[in-house]
């Protein structure tokens, strides 16, 4: 029996070797190096990381992720609700297809599309100017606000895809039960619908947060290094543009992993609860 058990684990060896070589060792190495000062264990690298540029980067990344996760989830919920309550099936298909495609648009092409659309001489900028709305100079696409708009382009469809199944899972009978007890549409959503959706909404929010926090290509193409973000800083440290201080880069990397891993851990927690609620 014991021999059989050990043999079964042998089947996992190729996968575990690969994961160790290309995921666990590289990341573990960063953690070890971040927590040592060359001699022994130490948190000195994290103390050194508390400098203005890095604190700003974490504040910007967190703010950008919170804003786009919040707005993305809210708009995604509204769209999912509209799709669910619309009478035509075609809407559902159109929105699902559009969301599937656009949730995967990102990075350099997306950033560039937003420069073309919302740059100072962009198409939408000029169209809005025609009807008397001047975006510039109040708004700039090469700013944190611009990044929020660009990130929403992939955050909203992702939220629609994540929330649509749960919104569609709300049973008709619950609605009828609420109506028979005298609830109008608003009361139903506030007292029954939204509370039932709470785990899905929370897990969607966490996933969107992590998605935005780890993003790099969109921000790099759009704002270069003019907006300090955690991922932009780490990439700059890799290129050795800022300074050659590997241990400091490792500390920043470990902090960014902590933030994202926490978001994903919470997301899993809420997703499990969502699974229980729909049973």
């Amino acid at each position: 029996m014991l021999r059989h058990f050990r043999l079964a684990w042998l089947g996992l060896v190729p996968f575990l070797v690969f994961i160790t070589a290309f995921e666990l060792l590289p990341l573990g190495g960063l953690v070890l190096s971040a927590f040592s000062d060359g001699g022994g264990p130490s948190v000195v690298n994290f103390v050194r990381a508390a400098r203005p540029a890095i604190v700003t980067a974490f504040a910007n990344s967190t703010g950008l992720s919170l804003a786009t996760a919040l707005l993305g989830t809210a708009v995604g919920l509204v769209i999912a609700y509209l799709v669910q309550t619309s009478r035509s099936r075609r809407w559902r298909n159109v929105v699902t297809a559009l969301s599937t495609v656009t949730a995967s648009f990102g990075g350099a092409p997306l950033a560039f599309a937003f420069i073309i659309a919302l740059g100072s001489t962009g198409m939408i900028t000029m169209l809005l100017g025609l009807v008397g709305i001047d975006l510039y100079p109040g708004f700039r696409i090469y700013s944190v606000t611009g990044l929020i708009v660009a990130y929403l382009y992939f955050q909203i469809p992702l939220a629609v895809l994540l929330l649509l199944p749960s919104v569609q899972g709300l049973k008709r009978e619950w609605r009828e039960a609420a109506t028979s007890l005298g609830a109008d549409g608003r009361a139903y959503w506030l007292r029954v619908g939204l509370p039932l959706l709470r785990p899905s909404i929370a897990s969607c929010f966490c996933l969107l947060f992590a998605n935005a926090f780890g993003a790099y290509a969109t921000a790099w193409t759009l704002t270069g290094s003019s907006v300090e973000l955690v991922t932009v800083q780490i990439a700059a440290l890799i290129r050795g543009e800022v300074q050659l201080d590997p241990a400091l880069a490792d500390a920043i990397a470990v902090l960014s992993m902590l933030v994202m891993a926490a978001a994903i851990w919470l997301q899993r927690l809420f997703a499990r609860r969502q699974g229980m609620a729909s049973r």
């Binding site: 992590a210 780890g214 790099y216 955690v230 992993m257």
Partner: peptide, 8 residues
Amino acid sequence: FGFPAVVL
């Protein structure tokens, strides 16, 4: 999903 690609 729990770390940025640049960290890898």
